[in-house]
Design a protein around this nucleic acid. Sequence first.
DNA 1: TACAACGAAATTGTATACCAAAACTTGGAG
DNA 2: CTCCAAGTTTTGGTATACAATTTCGTTGTA
Lengths: 220, 220
Amino acid sequence: MDRLPSAKIRDSLEQRIVEGELGNGKRLDETELSSFYGVSRTPVREALQRLAESGLADHLPRRGTFVRSPSLSQLVEMFEVMAELECMAIRLAARRATANDIDALEKDNETCRAAVAANDTKKYYEVNARLHGRIYQMSGNSFLAIEARRLHDRLRPFRRLQLRVRGRMEESMAEHDIILAALRDGDADLAMETMKKHITIVGVRFNDLVSSFNQIMGDE
Amino acid sequence: MDRLPSAKIRDSLEQRIVEGELGNGKRLDETELSSFYGVSRTPVREALQRLAESGLADHLPRRGTFVRSPSLSQLVEMFEVMAELECMAIRLAARRATANDIDALEKDNETCRAAVAANDTKKYYEVNARLHGRIYQMSGNSFLAIEARRLHDRLRPFRRLQLRVRGRMEESMAEHDIILAALRDGDADLAMETMKKHITIVGVRFNDLVSSFNQIMGDE
DNA sequence: TACAACGAAATTGTATACCAAAACTTGGAG
DNA sequence: CTCCAAGTTTTGGTATACAATTTCGTTGTA
């Protein structure tokens, strides 16, 4: 699998954006990026076009391309949609999951729990993402899986908002437990209900959210 | 609003794809397109990158860019997700709709009904799209509105599948009526339930679907 | 100081020419 | 007919040039 430089650049930029290295309206200078990646402007421009198309950047004609960090209200909207997609995935997964699938989830969940105990947030995020990705796959709807993963990735830098709230990490683990148990029982309704609560940030007090948000975004 | 040539080409290609002019794995030749649009290869290549990113085309390294027509199973998956998004939109809209909003919907619905009576399918599709778009807006979640519209557009050439089935058009109108009435009553549950039925193609018999699909796609 | 106008510098968008690498085509040879 | 090799085509990318704008800095003025 020999990917093209332009595709690699696109992915690298995506990663650097969602990891926060390039944040908050940062200008993506074509010549600067071409020297950074050691290529000419052409592949860089193509990468930027694709970033803009996928919504991670904003392209203003003859002005430049800028990292698009969603506003707080857009962020809430995105989480609202994410909750719906996760809900849908778990509902389908509850119908289609095999014992093997659920075992794999349990395993991830235990790894997650260990990460919480060890206070290893990096590990937690990583395994958590894998767990949710597994659920998307288990839904049996590959289009849903792709879209959910895309949105999940895009929300990654903001997901920690959910965990800033005191005790949220333990609560989150408890929700995972309930969801997995519901999956084993084939109780789609309980799984959905818990998942919606699990994802949504509506329950987070608005002030907490705004302050965390400003911390992440650099406040200005 | 002076758009760039590359953006215009991208949109033109998108339109030509969803309208069916460029269908089913059609190769998008860079030099051919550049002479067609009277520009050099550069802006064409950028337009193709964006098309591929948005999922309307497939980009195979060093082989070319091809119109991506979803397989039948992918199509079912996409409609499944579409139903979920529409459901979500109508649920939110039921909470937030003003009398004015609903009046506008009623007006579109009447225009729709007239189009059905006159057997004017083109008009029907157009107004139907406007009506659904209005519901997305009414959800108050602009991110949902954008995503729903994007998927709606991508499914446009296949939406007629739903209407191929005998009597589906009248049934569809009846569903619109129920949804609007439910909106007026603030009955989100009824609106959602009807909307889900309205969008989903699961109810369509599989054979009907396959044969219609093959007709559209050129069968081969 | 504040500010408006003007011009220089920088950046984007496209054109053009060119080339390497990979894929496709074609024309036998067996 | 199948297989293989040479030639052709197409893509991905470099380098360069240049028009269209935007941005920035400076100057002149109130």
